[in-house]
Amino acid sequence: MLIVKDLTYSYRKHSLPVLRNLSLQISPGSICGLLGKNGAGKSTLLYLISGLLKPKSGTISFGIFTPWERNVNFLNDIFLVPEEFELPNITLKEFLSTTAPFYPNFSMSDLERHLATFELDADVHLGQLSMGQKKRVFVSFALACNTSLLLLDEPTNGLDIPGKRLFRKAVLNGMNDNRTIIISTHQVYDVEKIIDHVIITESNGILLDSPILDITSRLRFRNTPNREEASKALIALDAPGGFNIVELMDGDKEETNVNLESLFELVLSNPSVVKSVFES
């Protein structure tokens, strides 16, 4: 279980905090989408969770570990795929022989499976890959390490359209009940179909922290050409053929898939309404 309590962080002593009194809990077995505007502190939160930054105040714990202490057993059980990363200028096999042994749960067969999902050849030289191919290899490796906590920061940046589809497939293949995956992104369409928990942040804290099931039981997302319907909705966004709207769930209506973009806009534009909906 990942528990963040009253977390505050600022990059400089006297500057405004990037994160303020942020609290959240994420249980194992969930793929969590961490959404927020640019500069909302998504990457900072991931760095804090992975122990790459020291909180100014508040606590973070992952099981028995405090990330900032960077205990070896904690590092064994967490993997961060940053938005931009460096791979050594060696072959994939050499990379595996030097880096995989640091992860006790690394599985070669899982790696093969993920590489196959990404339609990648395993006999590659890391220095000769494009950015997108490097990302495919690195995400495959990250999934094959079978760490309890996997943090992905903007994982679909640099991936082409098939790559994004394969990414979703690989993440779903790599998921199990003991694992927590946190995906930080502002490309909501890329993760819409795979996440089962949504966290929307801004610097003042968490605006929404809810399982997808809970969201769909309270809100309906649909497209309508009807302007009057749109005017009555919680939010209506222009869309081809009409409006994407979010409305309150009526007991007898069928649940819909979440439209993350609409949800995101609703939460940012009207946080108090969202709060009242989810607290009721």
């Binding site: 590092l75 064994n76 990363f85 640091f102």
Partner: peptide, 12 residues
């Protein structure tokens, strides 16, 4: 930043 992440996150 890239180098710092790979160095600091290595499990040792």
């Amino acid at each position: 930043k890239k180098g710092r992440i790979s160095t600091l996150m290595l499990p040792a």
